[in-house]
Design a binder for these strands. Sequence first.
DNA 1: TCGCCCGTCTACACCGGTGTAAATCGTTTC
DNA 2: GAAACGATTTACACCGGTGTAGACGGGCGA
Lengths: 344, 344
Amino acid sequence: MATMADVARHAGVSVKTVSNVLSGYPHVRETTRERVRASVDALGYEINVTAKIFRSGRSGVVGLSVPELGQPYFGELADEILAAARRHGLQVLIEPTGFTRDGELAALRVPRGGLVDGLIFSPAALVQADAHLLDELGYPLVLLGEQMFSSSVDHVTMRNIDGAQAATDLLLDAGRRQIAAIGMLHAETAGSAWLRYTGYSKALEARGIEVDTRLLGWADDAWHRANGARAMAAVLDSGVRVDGVVAFNDALAIGAMYELQARGLAIPQDVGVVGFDDIEDSRYSVPTLTTIDPGRREIANVAVDILRRRLQEPQGSSAERGSPVLYLAGMRIVERESTPRRAG
Amino acid sequence: MATMADVARHAGVSVKTVSNVLSGYPHVRETTRERVRASVDALGYEINVTAKIFRSGRSGVVGLSVPELGQPYFGELADEILAAARRHGLQVLIEPTGFTRDGELAALRVPRGGLVDGLIFSPAALVQADAHLLDELGYPLVLLGEQMFSSSVDHVTMRNIDGAQAATDLLLDAGRRQIAAIGMLHAETAGSAWLRYTGYSKALEARGIEVDTRLLGWADDAWHRANGARAMAAVLDSGVRVDGVVAFNDALAIGAMYELQARGLAIPQDVGVVGFDDIEDSRYSVPTLTTIDPGRREIANVAVDILRRRLQEPQGSSAERGSPVLYLAGMRIVERESTPRRAG
DNA sequence: TCGCCCGTCTACACCGGTGTAAATCGTTTC
DNA sequence: GAAACGATTTACACCGGTGTAGACGGGCGA
């Protein structure tokens, strides 16, 4: 394979001049530039990317850690992030963590001298005790998700509390009072579950309704459809009356709708259902699902922008770095068939 | 950041000895080995991956090009491939092509000296005229999908024809005769559409039924739910009677089921529906979807294995390389609620 | 005791670019 | 005509590892 030296010899110039031509250095005579270009074409030369990376210390690759691409929310998020990264000439190395703490710890163990310049990380299983790991990683990190861990790290997140509260209000406004919450996770795992629950309970509280623990559907491993169906079944089996469901994501909601319909309950007549995430599925479920759009594209764009900005900064002491950013994406209610029309 | 030279100085040995310890070279005295290890720990040394890559010419990164991760089939496939790659210490750089020819051509333009050692590529928009591009890329390529392009490239594929034929037979066995095919694509784009259509028409032919073009539902951009609903609507609007649907993937099937149910048709009583891919959605749609499991995990594992084998081979002339592999993954019918019980 | 072998360790070149500083050249200015 | 200047080009060190060949030293057989 041809190297830059071969091109230089062929064009009768120095290696550095070839380098200058290829990297767009302006002070090169037009005739020289053309001669070099011709030699590049003649030899079919392609620059050795690994040498460039090695020398410059920058690979132009950013890592992305999400739990699982098979989950539409994360698959769609990954598409958005990949697109945003590509617009800026960055490539993306994806590391699914499989919803496990070990997987997430492994994702953080990116070597500093490695081929990843920075990381966009969507944690789902780390616990509070792991927070200190995020502070001095030695490379730029942008967290997707609530600022639960460390205030010294950039966060891009959605309005989990507001969204869940709005979802719950939608059902309350329609006169529903027996509203199940599907997707509860045990407290030691960090993430959106607790926040969405907070939004749910705040909405109830605001109307003077107490949370009925029989209405809480637990989905311990992950927010898959299967767990939504299971959790819904558990709530119904408890014998409590249900006329509304707030599911903590769309997959859970679709699983819950499956279980409700399997038991002969009509949506939205008997039970209104609201999801969270606005994944593509929610537009084609039967019935179509009312959901909260958490601003996925905005999150992807902002996360990539913040990371890019961090990559420009000197990597040395934290003194030279800008202060950490906390960005809240916009949220939107998407009303579809699974909820009753709003009263009034 | 500490370099290998720092460690060598600290441990009182040569740089190469440190290198030898870290790379597991056996002829190092145990005491030396321990001293080096201690120095590594003391200095918090981490090997510079980019230097290693540069020197060795191997990055341990393989590319993966799929149309879109937001589509559950590709998201789930990507998860499987990432898992298989990780088991062998490989990392994966994903490049979604957005179902466009330009996107796919861009994905193939991986520089030889680049940071990707090889590529797993799932084409969906390339046309026959592009076939020659695949022949002499200069790096190992494994194609997911039918051997439509080039016989000189490794292929891992599913039984598209057999699967679609089995899906159609399932409905024919139940006495259905007016079976729509949802997901037709125009011929110049390569891919599974044509093969699945072939399976569909073969099944009909075997019973002496002629293909009724009014039963063909066209989905031109991509196999999304939205297109499934649209194609189904177009077929129904043509006025033709429909008592079965073979959709070329599950997303199309779910979109089609949505449209059928919106028009008051019962599944499977009025219309039986079969999908293709066995994505997780199909287990939780209403009704649950009968589908063809194309052996996704097997495909992922085999693709990674073949690519690994190619990476071991000398990269020189094609004479030294093994002959191209064509691997057909196993296929399985997954019967759920959307099809009538088989007669007999 | 000498030579040989083997285990251990080291010096040095090298991978293929890019940053730096300085050389070279053609104009322009005084 | 000489000095000054900017544009153009170049030599060379350097990034941080790994391959190669060879040095070194101790045990062993002759």
